[in-house]
Nucleic acid binder design. Structure first.
Lengths: 358, 358
DNA sequence: TTGTACGCGTTATCAA
DNA sequence: TTGATAACGCGTACAA
């Protein structure tokens, strides 16, 4: 046992300790650790042996400090200016960026208008010049997203998906919600709050349902809840409502719906526009209609507090942005194995606990 | 404008940049930053000026790397061996410790038996010799906790409280649940799931209620929900049940209760023992009794999945441990201002979303 | 009161 | 195939 120069204080083993014990220099140890070759097999084995003996863990701080490498990440997400919903994911991205800055991570946001395919294409196109090391994207437009995902795959740029899952070209990870399960949950809440049977309306407000797989999954989950429980006195009907911006015509559609189904028990709104239905119920002074929707938009929260919306299902949108970036960093910087699918909790929000989620 | 030696690459300002611009040495800048004195006022002002101009942010990594300081934290929490509930906070502490280890943080757990005041005192006593830099404690025993908190205050050791709030000797922060609000929430769930009025039982299972302020707050919140809404056909009755371990006597108590209140609508169990009531309901084949409780214990989850427990309110116990440690580190290491009260979300758990919380 | 120089653990370069 | 050494940004002991 020789104790030359500096002692290993604190019990954490360093490269230096390994080098010493293996009778080589730190350079050699480094080459072994990073498989850079140029090490004789015997020495290599000896070093590996010592490494596992001392169960060495590299010091992330020192590593990040010395590697002047910069990682440029792109966040391809809808512009919060067009839809309040996207403020939260955007904030999540910012927070992750903040936390990872000391590690040389820089995230640039490329925003698009979620109602304009062309703006998505333009934003996606603009990524190519920069040479990003990783991409985090909310692939709202299925077909267009596909083609860019193929391109990124070919270029070898890893990308994370969130909000909408498109598994075709394997993303590094999907972060988001289990749409089907959230439908089931909505069914449960509706059932739990009902005094008896009736018609449950699944309302798609201003959506292109056939092209939105997640809406279909939500619907399916909701229907299956009642089916699996054999609740035959509950009917589930899917309706499309268009143009919620024009109150008069929108309310007219709902009037017609109420005439058609006199025993309406409640609405399950499959996107964040529950407030549009709530406004109608308020105007027509309809009581005892259950209303379950998604997302903590200010308007939704207002109606939640007034008691017109009973439950909102929350998908932790901020977390989606945050983990989208963080998991990319885990992959690029820290060589961590990332889970291919990370479902975020389906939070049940009501008037009495909403304050803790905003 | 002179550009000697190294250029500032990447746009992040370093101490060296400040020194250069202010025409002093890095040592002086360092003394200014850390208020070590021994700097002439003029120079000090000039340096501060430059710092704010360049809005300098210290590099946490380099700082942690160079400061060989070790921070010893103590976690004074109940032994998970006696109560499964405490596994989660314990894990949270471990995770925070793991994350902060590169920064020289070491957390030592001092466990006590939550049913034995003496073991708490012994554990708390054992902290004193070590000389901890910070303490994270779940102060289950009010009076005894008070005396230790006073001692720590006098010794100048910062401490964080979680699970139970005792504001008398100002803790650095309280992390946990808003008991009153969780009672309100339980009331809402019970009301929402009821088909009509009846008696709601607030069940304290094996608890010393008078000495547990958080139980009283839960009860109060639950009662206030019905009171504030003017729901006069709902009666709320508080009952104490003892000895859930002895099934026969425990079930007998419940038999008596059901005789006394024939119109029982449901139970609100104020601690994590909802499973004890669920077992009774199952044995007696009682249907349509609502059951709302706390905490994701395995037994609770099992009954949740069987449909006997309808909702569990979750206080993110892992988060309590995690943030308890993290906020202490924010205070000690990173000089961050920590919020004095951090309420964790009141998660509503049901069969359909429980999978995302475990 | 101020400046210089070394070290923290890791990586990368260069000479041997 | 190896080893010595200079960085990375910051803190600090010590010299001036």
């Amino acid at each position: 046992m020789s104790h030359p120069s500096k002692e290993n204080i604190g019990g954490v083993t360093r490269i230096k300790d390994i080098a010493e014990k293996a009778g080589v220099s730190t350079g050699t140890v480094d080459r072994v650790i990073h498989n850079r070759g140029k090490v004789s097999p015997q020495v290599r084995d000896r070093v590996l042996q010592v490494i596992s003996e001392l169960n060495y863990e590299p010091n992330v701080l020192a590593r990040a400090l010395v590697s002047r490498r910069n990682y440029r990440l792109a966040a391809l997400i809808p512009d919060p200016g067009y839809d309040e919903y996207w403020e939260a994911p955007s904030k999540g991205v910012d927070e992750a960026q903040e936390q990872l800055r000391p590690y040389g991570v820089e995230v640039r946001k490329h925003l698009f208008d979620q109602n304009d395919v062309e703006s998505f294409k333009a934003a996606a196109e603009s990524l190519s010049d920069v040479g990003y090391n990783g991409i985090v994207v909310a692939p709202l437009f299925y077909r267009e997203s596909l083609s860019y995902m193929r391109r990124w795959s070919q270029e070898g740029i890893p990308f994370n998906l969130f909000n909408t899952h498109i598994p075709d070209y394997k993303p590094l990870a999907y972060i988001g919600q289990d749409s089907y399960q959230s439908g089931l949950l909505a069914g449960k809440l509706m059932h739990f709050g009902s005094k008896g049977g009736g018609t449950c309306l699944i309302a798609h407000v201003d959506e292109d349902v056939p092209n939105s797989s997640h809406l279909i999954k939500k619907e399916q989950g909701f229907m299956d809840y009642f089916q699996e429980k054999g609740l035959s006195d509950f009917k589930t009907i899917s309706i499309d409502l268009k143009g919620y911006g024009d109150e008069i015509s929108f309310h007219k559609q709902l009037d017609v719906t109420f005439e058609k189904y006199p025993d309406i028990l409640g609405f399950f709104v499959t996107n964040s526009r529950a407030y549009a239905i709530a406004a109608y119920l308020q105007k027509r002074a309809l009581k005892n209609i259950l209303l379950v929707g998604y997302d903590l938009l200010q308007k939704n929260i207002a109606y939640l507090n007034e008691g017109l919306i009973h439950f909102l299902i929350n998908q932790n949108p901020k977390g989606q942005g945050f983990y989208g970036v963080q998991m990319m960093a885990d992959h690029l910087l820290f060589n961590k194995q990332v889970e291919p699918i990370r479902y975020l909790p389906l939070d049940i929000i009501t008037k009495e606990n909403v304050q803790y989620y905003i």
